[in-house]
Nucleic acid binder design. Structure first.
Lengths: 150, 150
DNA sequence: GAATCTCAGTTCGTTCGACGAACTCAGAGT
DNA sequence: ACTCTGAGTTCGTCGAACGAACTGAGATTC
């Protein structure tokens, strides 16, 4: 934390953070992903939940589909015509750690330590948390240093 | 992944993801944080690295300081006048999991499995990774379900 | 078989923030 | 006095977000 300088890695070029951020780093994309994670899959539902402009929502959903993070799936409510909804692909589900990281930070620093939502193991019901680890033990953020892969 | 509906949690109100996202969810804030994590602390250095407009950079740095995520620290290069640079606070360092989550996803899905940067334990030099865990074992993203805290 | 309802999108005028080049400012060196 | 450097500020332009209204497909109702 104090001064032991963390290597001053060249952070510019093709760092994965840059790639991920300009693929889906804008606020709406992340919030739309949150909806999909939480089981809200339909255009109007997402639009109402987020209070997002319909044109922007169309744009973001298309972007997520183009990226292969979400996919269009047909559904049909009984006595209604066939429509489309959006679901996460495997690639999209793999973004869960990003969501959890945002959530845990917000829980701690914006909601005094405990937020309104918790994640649980579907099978056991146990709480799930996100952890930085090395080998077999947890590491604190300030013990970590970035290095360049050769 | 397939159809076992994940509870359809009411995701609207005061969810921590929303809070975190509209505090610092825009792309530039995240990229500025990346610079700070990687040891780039000075205005001109960040501006050049990111190729960000100077006015926007000023705005984002001020926002991060207002949020308590970064702080202004004076420095003085020998034979030059005193100037200011930006460093992460504890609250800012706590955002490392967000950065790592973005990085790991990008490494896997945008860079074929291995990115240019790795994180290591400062003491041992061992690689650090981010993991979803419950109790004492890792969990896969698709085994996880959101629940409401009562 | 015309009218109506629902949900998913599109259109388009307004508004707001990003972009970027040029400018300002403080202080140390020459 | 002049210059040099790093950290901002200014301001005109331009593109993206906003939001209210419109379109369109198919199923139900009268």
């Amino acid at each position: 934390m104090s001064h032991p300088e963390p290597l001053r890695t060249p952070p510019s070029e093709n760092c994965s953070i840059v790639g991920t951020v300009d693929a889906l780093g804008d606020s709406w994309s992340i919030l739309v992903l949150r909806e999909l994670f939480f089981g809200v899959h339909r255009f109007n539902d997402i639009q109402r939940d987020l209070d997002i402009s319909r044109s922007v929502l169309t744009n973001r959903l298309n972007r997520l589909v183009d990226l292969g993070v979400a996919k269009v799936v047909p559904y049909q409510e009984p006595g209604d015509r066939a429509r489309s909804e959006y679901r996460l692909t495997r690639k999209g589900v793999a973004l869960l750690p990003v969501m959890v990281a945002l959530m845990q930070w917000g829980d701690r620093y914006l909601n005094d330590g405990n937020g309104p939502v918790a994640l649980r193991d579907r099978a056991t019901g146990e709480a799930v948390r996100l952890e930085l680890r090395t080998g077999d033990r947890p590491v604190e953020p300030n013990e970590i240093v970035p290095t360049v892969n050769t």
